[in-house]
């Protein structure tokens, strides 16, 4: 518990928000969470600063009905703060955190792959030549799936290209 507390104390909210560059819903959620955290900390401080000892002898001398004071004193002495076992929740949070880190790593990998593809496409676009100078060999070098598709079609005896006639017309003579 003390570990969680120290971590919560150490957390630099401004840095978190600025470094993650979060926007929109996530940012507002985070700021509301921060507000809740601040509130809790403030209440905790307030409570800590309040005195906890009660001068029962004073009350006994002042009040006539000492029985009530005795009762209250007994009640006070028997009272113990309820200690909540948060270790389970903490472990859940830790598991959630590791899961989140894993997800983030995966997302990062995906984004990197996408970026690479986009860069490649950009390169292709930049190095593209006019339509009437492009050869079939260059196209199949850039896109090997065309050759694979043609081989598959030949093997399966599909000599007509679906959608070709609609696009480029039919040269059938008879």
């Amino acid at each position: 518990m003390s570990l969680a507390k120290s971590a919560a104390n150490k957390l630099d909210w401004a840095k978190v928000i600025s470094s993650l560059k979060l926007t929109g819903k996530t940012a507002t959620q985070l700021s509301s969470f921060k507000k809740r955290n601040d509130e809790a900390r403030r209440q905790l401080l307030e409570l800590q600063s309040q005195p906890t000892s009660v001068d029962f002898s004073h009350y006994r001398s002042v009040l006539k009905n000492t029985e009530v004071v005795d009762k209250i004193e007994q009640f006070y002495k028997s009272y113990k703060p309820v200690s909540v076992d948060v270790s389970k929740q903490l472990s859940t949070i830790e598991a959630f955190e590791s899961q989140a880190i894993e997800n983030a790593a995966e997302t990062e990998k995906l984004v990197a792959q996408e970026l690479k593809d986009l860069k490649e496409t950009l390169n292709n676009i930049e190095s593209a030549r006019p339509f009437d100078q492009l050869t079939v060999d260059e196209l199949t070098k850039a896109r090997p799936e065309i050759d694979a598709k043609v081989e598959e079609m030949v093997k399966k005896g599909r000599w007509d290209v679906p959608g070709y006639k609609e696009k480029f017309g039919d040269l059938t003579i008879m």
């Binding site: 079939v136 598709k149 043609v150 030949v154 290209v161 696009k167």
Partner: peptide, 16 residues
């Protein structure tokens, strides 16, 4: 020859 023509057709359709 025939796979070559087929390849040309597929390439044309792909590029369009």
């Amino acid at each position: 020859f025939l796979p070559q023509i087929l390849r040309l057709y597929v390439s044309r359709l792909f590029i369009s």
